[in-house]
């Protein structure tokens, strides 16, 4: 997803962005359908505006330095890339340092326990209003800020995004030759197939986990936390998710004949480590990485994720401009 945003300014390449937009639409409809039917409760993240802006922005910078966001780094580890492995180590360290270590004061300053903006209405979140939630205790979404039915926003946003996607559909050639097996495992997927697939994975994840859909960085933080403390209770849904991604990527790369242990030069390794470190700090301060915000939070219409996501993209653009476009 780093590439999706970076390449907009770097190469005027929108293919990956289209897949992301479609995945958001699919999930937005899916999440709200399931919430309306009572299968899940939407769980938008708390709106700490300072944390979203700062955390999101440095996360965006970090993912360009690390040459991949948290999820990109994760699957590249599975493909045998040592630069991403080093970035991953940085990510885990940066995260734990911020959530419970030397940088914890910065985190508590930007995520005040009191005074975070909350919405007054709770019924439109798909939660039972009689349930533990008091007035003014719901995390902000586009819907409850305006006191409107979330479906109004779901329908409007879906129509706008789909219209743009259909209008801009041409441009990239579709590869048609090859067997079905080759198409699935050896070639890059069409953007719309990818978008729908990711969307469906997100919906299944939310149904299975109940509390949230997809997230990557949190899984790695608890992985290292569990290793250090020796407490298996620290392992969570996201940990198994990221381990699954590494194994899945390794298998897929093996089938495609692309698995290979490889490493960039020393300077790039250091750069990727620092990038990972910055991403880890940003993900904990901003309460999620790009997957947790843009892919899982935005479809829930969470204001926190919309703001955090915007600043992740902004940080990414600023870093990409400085690193690749000048000179």
């Amino acid at each position: 997803m780093n590439s999706a945003f970076r390449d907009i300014i770097l190469m005027k390449e929108y293919t990956l962005l289209k897949a992301v937009a479609l995945a958001i639409v699919v999930q937005m409809i899916g999440f709200h359908l399931m919430a309306t039917m009572g299968y899940i409760q939407l769980n938008p993240k708390t709106f700490y505006w300072g944390a979203m802006i700062f955390g999101g922005f440095i996360f965006g910078i970090g993912m360009v330095l690390a040459a991949g966001c948290a999820s990109g780094t994760t699957y590249r580890v599975g493909e045998g890339m040592m630069g991403s492995f080093v970035a991953l180590l940085g990510l885990m360290i940066g995260g734990l340092v911020t959530s419970g270590g030397a940088l914890i004061d910065l985190k508590s300053y930007l995520q005040p326990t009191e005074g975070a903006l909350k919405a007054i209405t709770t019924t439109d979140l798909g939660v039972d209003p009689g349930d533990l939630l008091r007035e003014g205790n719901a995390n902000l979404t586009l819907a409850n800020v305006f006191g409107l039915d979330p479906w109004i926003f779901v329908v409007i946003i879906a129509i706008i995004l789909l219209a743009i996607l259909i209008w801009k559909r041409g441009g990239e050639e579709t590869k048609t030759e090859g067997t079905t097996y080759e198409k699935i495992f050896k070639m890059g997927w069409n953007w719309w197939l990818t978008g729908i697939a990711i969307g469906i994975v997100g919906i299944i994840a939310f149904l299975a986990f109940k509390k949230y859909a997809l997230g990557i960085s949190g899984g790695w933080f608890s992985f290292l936390d569990a290793l250090i403390t020796g407490d298996p209770e620290k392992l969570n849904w996201f940990t198994f998710l990221v381990i699954g991604v590494v194994i899945g990527a390794a298998i897929a790369a093996g089938i495609a004949g692309e698995f290979k242990l490889r490493a960039p030069n020393a300077r790039r390794l250091l750069q990727q480590f620092i990038g990972g470190l910055v991403m880890g700090i940003g993900a904990v301060i901003g309460t999620a990485c790009n997957i947790g915000h843009i892919l899982s939070g935005v479809p829930q219409l969470a204001l926190s994720s919309i703001l955090g996501g915007m600043f992740i993209v902004l940080g990414c653009w600023v870093a990409a401009y400085i690193m690749f476009m000048r000179g």
Binding site: S3, R6, M11, R76, G83, P264
Partner: peptide, 8 residues
């Protein structure tokens, strides 16, 4: 040895 976007 270089990863995206360096080769490009």
């Amino acid at each position: 040895g270089e990863v995206c976007p360096y080769p490009d």
